[in-house]
């Protein structure tokens, strides 16, 4: 009986917390009310959007590889889900980093469409 409870609790916990990168694409597309474009996401990611840095300044233009913080030089693990299974599995982290990094690169928050586009591109990287 106890085992069943433990398994049930584990399943419940997994159900509540675990998110997949695709879930975020779905969420952002829904918020934007439009489908994402990986091509637009690639352009957005690799070009400056008003700030001193682009996303690629730290994450590289091909985020299957590790990046480096543009200022401190600290290593950054790959951002593309295909290269790093830990990416885009926790909503709190995803929201935190989009908020901060959009502020740093655009001097504003990203729109749902911009986030959806970036997600579509990152998911297309293999």
């Amino acid at each position: 009986m106890r085992h069943i409870l433990i398994i049930a609790a584990a399943l419940f916990a997994a159900d509540v917390q675990a998110e997949t990168p695709r879930d975020f694409l779905t969420r952002f597309e829904k918020e934007a009310g439009a489908v994402a474009s990986a091509e637009r996401g690639a352009r957005f990611f690799t070009t400056k959007q008003g700030g001193e840095w682009s996303c690629a300044s730290c994450h590289t233009e091909r985020p299957m590889q590790a990046g480096r913080h543009a200022k401190t030089g600290k290593a950054i693990t790959p951002l593309a889900p295909a290269a790093n299974a830990e990416r885009f599995t926790d909503a709190a982290k995803v929201d935190k980093w989009f908020r901060r990094n959009c502020n740093d690169t655009l001097n504003r928050l990203c729109s749902a469409q911009e986030k959806a586009d970036v997600m579509a591109w990152l998911l297309a990287l293999k």
Binding site: K71, K96, R99, R100, N101, N103, D104
Partner: peptide
């Protein structure tokens, strides 16, 4: 923290 040496490092 939202202006942390030029970066937004805000946390909850």
């Amino acid at each position: 923290l939202s202006r942390h040496f030029g970066s937004d490092a805000s946390i909850d």
